[in-house]
Design a binder for these strands. Structure first.
Length: 235
RNA sequence: UCUGAUGACGG
């Protein structure tokens, strides 16, 4: 089983979904990892519909699932903005120990956010018992993505109050939110802060956010300087 | 002693 599972993963990473499926179909024994490999491979390969179909089959036949299976199907729902399906699947595990796992919770949170239901995302977020940097970053990113820059920044300030350490991915969303909200000084402050106080080296994405922040605010000279001074080949 | 997993920007 371990060999088959590994082969499936290898073919999927190479983009050979057919070969992965061929290995799967020839396996005499399968475990929850085998099924999750198939679902995860489809979900991450932009084939969310297939991922959900395989999961339906899994459930109908009573085949084994685990924590990772659920993360994968919520990811599939998120990528397809399949809110009704996501809600139904969430209802299946509501109140269970699975739902209270932070990685599953983060996948559910992200599903509601990506489906555009920030009210439900926030409701779920508020009752999560464990929140990590991914939970906060997901909320910030989804608020920013849906044009609620102020909510995104408010979320970030709450994260700071709760003393959860933001990482480089959190800052991409924070800088983006500052850009869309026209908060140039605040964006510059956090760009500086992440380097000096958290020793996070800005990557190309951070610099691009700063160029966007300055350019959007009409500060074209400073935006150009930012492009010239960044330690990366501008893309 | 192995396999699958959750957060990201601009155009």
């Amino acid at each position: 089983i371990a060999m088959g599972n590994r082969l499936i993963g290898m073919y999927q990473r190479c983009g050979s979904m057919d070969s992965a499926h061929e290995v799967f179909s020839h396996m005499l024994e399968r475990d929850s990892v085998t099924w999750t490999e198939m679902i995860g491979g489809y979900a991450n390969g932009g084939l969310g519909k297939l991922a959900l179909d395989v999961f339906d089959h899994l459930q109908q036949e009573g085949f084994p699932t685990d924590r990772v299976t659920y993360i994968c199907i919520f990811t599939a729902c998120a990528s397809r903005a399949a809110l009704a399906k996501g809600k139904a699947l969430h209802a299946c595990i509501a109140g269970s120990v699975l739902e209270s796992d932070v990685t599953v919770g983060n996948a559910i949170l992200n599903m509601y956010g990506k489906c555009g239901n920030m009210k439900e995302a926030h409701r779920f977020f508020s009752q999560m018992l464990v929140l990590d940097v991914v939970s906060w970053s997901s909320m910030i990113a989804n608020y920013a993505q849906h044009g609620h820059s102020k909510d995104a920044l408010q979320m970030f300030h709450e994260m700071r109050r709760k003393e959860v350490l933001p990482d480089r991915i959190t800052f991409v969303s924070v800088l983006c939110a500052c850009s869309h909200a026209g908060r140039v000084a605040e964006g510059c402050y956090w760009f500086d802060f992440m380097q000096k106080d958290l020793a996070i080296k800005p990557n190309l994405d951070h610099y691009n956010c700063m160029v966007d922040l300055l350019g959007r605010a009409g500060m074209l000279t400073q935006a150009e300087d930012m492009i010239r001074d960044m330690p990366f080949e501008p893309n």
